[in-house]
Protein backbone atom coordinates (compact mmCIF):
# COMPACT_ATOMS: atom_id res chain seq x y z
CA UNK A 1 0.00 0.00 0.00
CA UNK A 2 1.30 3.45 -0.90
CA UNK A 3 1.05 6.01 1.87
CA UNK A 4 -0.58 9.06 0.29
CA UNK A 5 -0.11 12.62 1.41
CA UNK A 6 -3.59 12.51 3.00
CA UNK A 7 -2.84 9.34 4.97
CA UNK A 8 0.42 10.85 6.19
CA UNK A 9 -1.38 14.00 7.34
CA UNK A 10 -4.02 11.93 9.16
CA UNK A 11 -1.46 9.71 10.91
CA UNK A 12 0.62 12.75 11.88
CA UNK A 13 -2.49 14.43 13.27
CA UNK A 14 -3.46 11.37 15.32
CA UNK A 15 0.09 11.25 16.69
CA UNK A 16 0.19 14.98 17.40
CA UNK A 17 3.22 15.43 15.10
CA UNK A 18 3.89 18.43 12.88
CA UNK A 19 5.54 17.41 9.63
CA UNK A 20 7.26 20.09 7.58
CA UNK A 21 6.15 20.36 3.97
CA UNK A 22 9.62 19.53 2.59
CA UNK A 23 9.72 16.33 4.65
CA UNK A 24 6.42 14.84 3.54
CA UNK A 25 7.81 12.98 0.51
CA UNK A 26 10.50 11.32 2.59
CA UNK A 27 8.04 10.20 5.30
CA UNK A 28 5.59 8.93 2.70
CA UNK A 29 8.36 6.79 1.16
CA UNK A 30 9.58 5.52 4.54
CA UNK A 31 6.13 4.57 5.77
CA UNK A 32 5.32 2.87 2.47
CA UNK A 33 8.49 0.78 2.88
CA UNK A 34 7.57 -0.12 6.49
CA UNK A 35 4.15 -1.30 5.43
CA UNK A 36 5.58 -3.35 2.57
CA UNK A 37 7.96 -5.00 5.02
CA UNK A 38 5.18 -5.84 7.50
CA UNK A 39 3.07 -7.20 4.63
CA UNK A 40 5.58 -10.05 4.40
CA UNK A 41 3.61 -11.52 7.33
CA UNK A 42 0.68 -12.06 4.99
CA UNK A 43 2.67 -14.88 3.35
CA UNK A 44 2.41 -17.02 6.50
CA UNK A 45 -0.42 -19.55 6.39
CA UNK A 46 -2.69 -18.69 9.35
CA UNK A 47 -5.98 -20.40 8.35
CA UNK A 48 -5.76 -22.79 11.29
CA UNK A 49 -4.19 -20.43 13.82
CA UNK A 50 -6.46 -18.64 16.28
CA UNK A 51 -5.81 -14.89 16.54
CA UNK A 52 -3.30 -13.92 19.20
CA UNK A 53 -4.47 -11.26 21.60
CA UNK A 54 -1.67 -11.53 24.13
CA UNK A 55 1.91 -12.53 23.42
CA UNK A 56 2.90 -14.11 26.74
CA UNK A 57 1.64 -17.43 28.18
CA UNK A 58 -0.15 -15.67 31.05
CA UNK A 59 -3.75 -15.15 32.13
CA UNK A 60 -5.79 -14.05 35.15
CA UNK A 61 -3.28 -11.83 36.89
CA UNK A 62 -5.38 -10.13 39.53
CA UNK A 63 -4.99 -8.08 42.68
CA UNK A 64 -7.29 -8.09 45.69
CA UNK A 65 -9.54 -5.08 46.29
CA UNK A 66 -7.41 -3.67 49.10
CA UNK A 67 -6.64 0.03 49.44
CA UNK A 68 -3.00 1.03 49.20
CA UNK A 69 -1.60 4.45 49.99
CA UNK A 70 -1.82 7.00 47.18
CA UNK A 71 0.90 9.51 46.37
CA UNK A 72 1.18 12.73 48.32
CA UNK A 73 -0.37 15.44 46.23
CA UNK A 74 2.91 17.38 46.14
CA UNK A 75 4.67 14.31 44.76
CA UNK A 76 1.89 13.71 42.21
CA UNK A 77 2.17 17.28 40.95
CA UNK A 78 5.96 17.48 41.11
CA UNK A 79 6.61 17.10 37.40
CA UNK A 80 3.53 18.93 36.17
CA UNK A 81 4.56 21.82 33.91
CA UNK A 82 1.59 23.82 35.19
CA UNK A 83 -0.39 23.47 38.40
CA UNK A 84 -2.92 25.48 40.39
CA UNK A 85 -4.59 24.88 43.79
CA UNK A 86 -3.67 21.20 43.84
CA UNK A 87 -4.84 20.65 40.26
CA UNK A 88 -2.93 19.83 37.12
CA UNK A 89 -3.43 22.89 34.94
CA UNK A 90 -3.80 22.41 31.20
CA UNK A 91 -4.01 24.98 28.43
CA UNK A 92 -7.26 25.63 26.58
CA UNK A 93 -8.81 22.36 25.45
CA UNK A 94 -9.49 22.34 21.72
CA UNK A 95 -11.76 19.84 20.03
CA UNK A 96 -10.64 18.44 16.68
Amino acid sequence: MKVSKEILANVAGLSRLAIAEEETTRYQEDLTKFLAYVETLNEVATENTPPTTYALPMENVFREDDVRPSLDREAALLNAPLKEDGYFKVPKVLED
Binding site: R63, R68, P69, S70, L71, R73, L77, D85, G86, Y87
Partner: peptide, 16 residues
Protein backbone atom coordinates in the same frame (compact mmCIF):
# COMPACT_ATOMS: atom_id res chain seq x y z
CA UNK B 1 -4.29 0.20 41.22
CA UNK B 2 -4.86 0.34 44.97
CA UNK B 3 -6.00 3.99 45.13
CA UNK B 4 -9.29 4.48 47.01
CA UNK B 5 -12.45 5.15 44.99
CA UNK B 6 -14.20 7.08 47.77
CA UNK B 7 -16.26 10.02 46.50
CA UNK B 8 -15.57 13.60 47.60
CA UNK B 9 -11.84 13.50 48.47
CA UNK B 10 -9.68 16.60 47.98
CA UNK B 11 -8.43 16.95 44.41
CA UNK B 12 -5.54 14.72 43.32
CA UNK B 13 -5.20 12.89 46.63
CA UNK B 14 -6.37 9.49 45.31
CA UNK B 15 -3.75 9.17 42.62
CA UNK B 16 -0.61 7.10 42.12
Amino acid sequence: CGCATEFGAAQNTHVC
